[in-house]
Amino acid sequence: MLGLRPTSQPSAKMATYVQTPFGRFCREFAESRLALLGLAVLVGVMVVALAAPLLAPQNPYDLAQLDVLDGKLAPGEQSMGGKTYLLGTDDQGRDMLSGIFYGLRISLSVGVMSTLFALGLGLAFGMVAAYFGGWVDTIIMRIVDIQLSFPSILIALILLAVFGQGVDKVIIALVAVQWAYYARTVRAAALVERQKEYVEAAKVLALSKPRIVFRHMLPNCLPPLIVVATVQVAHAISLEATLSFLGLGMPITEPSLGLLISNGFTYLMSGKYWISFYPGLALLITIVAINLVADQLRDVLNPRLKK
């Protein structure tokens, strides 16, 4: 956390300046114990998600293993077959623990994939618009305007209604919903950057346009983007849950965390809290971990925070 305090002595930093950039990055990242904890949890969550088929006591997507007669068992209760369900079962007799493991897998991949694609798309369009200006900017920003003037839910709703259900379709819908947002944020940041001396300098040096845009301006536009992107991973996961809540998105037999939560939603009031609560908890832990890591990443990566 040393580098974060504006008034801290620069000498401590100087001493380690000789390391490789990656080594320095790791060291600086490790300065926050909270971030390390977040990283540990995130790695744990990812391992669980990847190894779900090995860890889960049941394959919650295999209908032959479910029995509706075992539905809505409370945590710790025994099924008719004598099995004990640690976190109870949902209304279809799906083991909640297994459901959460598998659900994590889907939610994470949906959140991360859609954010990456959207970020890439938004970044490219935003930078291009800001740098080139003129009609390129006009066209891109008008498309962005169209995009942003649709309520995101409505775009996703229409897209999913047309496409049908499935992980890939949800990712497409989420990318379509989010890319414009990045484009606009990048453009706003880049517009300010473009006025700065170093860009002028680069131009004087007759560097190529793409080089100026992607090597020089891009890194300086990143900090606000990282903030937005971390928020958006969480947002993507929760938007996916909302779509499931509205009846579109994941197939009901292969629930994501979001779908598990919304399935349990109907039972919240009747005291069967576990159907909604535990997936909610898993979602919360995952997102908090992502954000702890991302926060520290941003601090470390921000060129202006370390002088």
Partner: peptide, 13 residues
Amino acid sequence: TRIGLDIKVETMP
């Protein structure tokens, strides 16, 4: 599935 069919489920609004 218990009588040996392979089943998918698709529900929609």
